[in-house]
Every structure is written in structure tokens, then in C-alpha cells.
């Protein structure tokens, strides 16, 4: 993310949401809710319920989910950067690309590059970037994402396909 984005992230609402996500995840890890696997969607929902209880700030649920999704993206990308993802990404053979790219999707090596591509996509079609954040970084289902963005699941599926094609092309370095 650009420097401006980072600044926005580390202050104000983003910091609140990020802190809440961390707290909830830490509570899960301490075993306060044994026998459950923490899902990102559940995490975001719970963070919303907690913060919404605090006051009127979060009366717009969609707005909240958008911010939470952005937080998750930031968390994951920062973590990948801290682990030296760029170096591993640069080491991937992108000529024989399809296989390595699909394999990379399971690895966090790709995340910083994906983040940059997503920032470019955001500039021309913000909605597509939102879809990717919800689907990929939060792991929401097609129906959940469609509801969060106020569109029909069928439309969402097609836009998701477009976003994936666009990002796949961007990451494979082709045009």
C-alpha cells in the first residue's frame, strides 16, 4: 500500500478495527473458546458486534466490513513482507507461469505483488478491489460478499471472475 494508505491504516478507525481483530484472535488462541476454529468471517462479524456495541460509530455495517477487510489485507500483506516474500516472489519463474502462479496463490510469497496489483485495480475499478478483499482476504462466500456489497450473487460471480482474470494477468506480467 502507498504511504498515504499506510498512514490512514495506522490511525483512527483502521487502528480500532485492527486492534479489535487482534484482540479477538488472541482470545481465541488463549483457548477461551475451545474446540472451535477461528474463521476470518467469524472474526470480522464478532469485531463488528463488539465495536457496534461501543457506540454509533459503526452503524453502517457495510462500511465496517469494508474496513475490516482492508485491515485483513494489510495484516496479511505486512506479514508476508516481514517474512521476505518479495525475495521469494522474485525467485519464482514467471515464464512458465501458470503453474507457479497458481501454486504461489497458496503461499504468501505472492501477497506483496498481489497487493500492488490490487492497488492499481482499485484506481480504475474500486468495486473489483473490494470484492477481492472480501473474497480472498476475509474468505467470505459468494453469497456473503454479494450481500455485503448489495449485488446479486450472479453479478458478483461474474465480477469476481473479472477481478481474478485481471489480477492473474497483472501478476503474470502479461498484457
Amino acid at each position: 500500500m502507498d504511504p498515504v494508505g499506510r498512514t490512514a491504516f495506522s490511525s483512527g478507525v483502521y487502528a480500532d478495527v485492527y486492534g479489535e481483530l487482534r484482540r479477538i484472535a488472541a482470545a481465541y488462541m488463549r483457548g477461551e473458546r475451545p474446540g472451535q476454529t477461528l474463521q476470518a468471517t467469524a472474526l470480522v462479524h464478532e469485531a463488528y458486534l463488539r465495536l457496534a456495541g461501543d457506540g454509533a460509530l459503526w452503524n453502517d455495517r457495510q462500511h465496517f466490513i469494508g474496513i475490516a477487510a482492508r485491515s485483513m489485507r494489510q495484516i496479511l500483506v505486512d506479514r508476508a513482507r516481514a517474512r521476505g516474500a518479495q525475495k521469494r516472489w522474485a525467485g519464482l519463474d514467471r515464464v512458465s507461469l501458470t503453474e507457479s502462479l497458481i501454486a504461489a496463490a497458496a503461499d504468501d510469497a505472492m501477497l506483496p505483488a498481489l497487493d500492488e496489483a490490487l492497488t492499481r485495480l482499485e484506481a480504475i475499478e474500486p468495486e473489483l478491489a473490494r470484492i477481492v478483499e472480501l473474497r480472498y482476504f476475509v474468505g467470505m462466500s459468494v453469497d456473503e460478499t454479494a450481500a455485503a456489497l448489495n449485488m446479486s450473487p450472479a453479478t458478483l460471480k461474474r465480477r469476481w471472475a473479472l477481478a481474478r482474470a485481471w489480477l492473474f494477468r497483472a501478476l503474470s506480467g502479461g498484457s
Binding site: 476470518a40 485483513m72 496479511l76 501458470t98 502462479l101 497458481i102 496463490a105 497458496a106 504468501d108 501477497l111 477481492v132 473474497r135 480472498y136 482476504f137 476475509v138 474468505g139 481474478r164 489480477l167 492473474f168
Partner: peptide
């Protein structure tokens, strides 16, 4: 293919 699925987190 399965690019970006399954989700990262």
C-alpha cells in the same frame, strides 16, 4: 484455474 481460491486467511 484456482487462482485466488482458496482464500488466504
Amino acid at each position: 484455474g484456482s487462482f485466488l481460491t482458496p482464500p488466504e486467511p
